[in-house]
């Protein structure tokens, strides 16, 4: 099995202006802070960011917002980041809200090679506006489109050189789904292990989904416990 280890500069350099980028994580756990930092440094513009949330002010995705790199966010909520809410209210970024499980399922559908799915979730809410409706066996459903991306940025607890991954505790969240749904999947790994270092039945994301593995040399403060 091939070795997918890549330098962080080389991996992130693939992301150009206008790219659609999925970012794993729910709050701090699972957010690939180091990959995001490099994305800020390399500074591609007009990005669409797909993430559960916009982190908190001054953390993670908020650095991309502050650097003016983001045109559009697709999220389930941004309530912990007043700065993101402000940018939205000022019309400086476009925000698409999805119910959290529908966001997850749209990403999963793309990763599974499906065009979309039918659901009754949110049918009688503002979030149904503009979505196609179909009738099936006498019931009406919304059509939810699959959500795919050019890139996924993923934080793994452990990776082997082929890209088999494990996630820690609640840091799993959207990461295994996003790792299936993007053309190019870039992983930052807290722990690099040899091939065979992750037991086959313990693998959360199988290597064939992964393109580049970056070994983290150290964990910045961003990964730590947040004392609110």
């Amino acid at each position: 099995m091939i070795n997918k280890r890549t330098s962080i500069e080389e991996a992130i350099a693939k992301i150009g202006d206008g790219a659609v980028v999925m970012v794993g994580g729910f709050g701090v756990p699972g957010t690939p802070f180091t990959l995001i930092e490099e994305l800020v440094r390399q500074n591609p513009r007009r990005l669409t960011i797909i993430k559960n949330d916009a982190n908190e002010a001054g953390m993670g995705v908020d650095h991309l917002l502050r650097n003016g790199q983001v045109e559009r966010l697709v999220v389930s909520h941004i309530g912990l980041n007043p700065h993101a809410i402000q940018l939205k209210n000022e019309g400086r970024i476009e925000v698409e809200f999805c119910p959290q499980g529908i966001l997850a399922e749209r990403i999963r559908a793309a990763g599974a090679g499906l065009a979309g799915f039918l659901t009754d979730i949110a049918m009688e809410t503002l979030l149904a506006e503009g979505k196609p409706r179909v009738e099936l066996d006498g019931e009406e459903y919304l059509v939810e489109r699959a959500l795919e991306a050019d890139f996924a940025l993923i934080h793994a607890h452990a990776a082997d050189p082929f890209g088999n991954l494990t996630y820690a505790a609640s840091a799993r969240n959207f990461s295994p789904l996003m790792a299936m749904a993007a053309d190019t999947v870039i992983v930052e790994a807290e722990n690099m292990v040899a091939l065979g270092g992750i037991a086959p039945e313990a693998v959360h994301t199988p290597g064939p989904f992964v393109d580049h593995v970056v070994e983290l040399q150290e964990l910045s403060e961003a990964y730590g416990v947040v004392r609110r």
Binding site: S76, H77, P99
Partner: peptide, 19 residues
């Protein structure tokens, strides 16, 4: 949501309420 005043997004609230 309170349109124009409170717009943090829905999170998982719709599914929890509906299902």
């Amino acid at each position: 949501i309170i349109p124009g005043k409170y717009t943090p997004g829905v999170g998982g609230g719709i599914e929890l309420a509906q299902k």
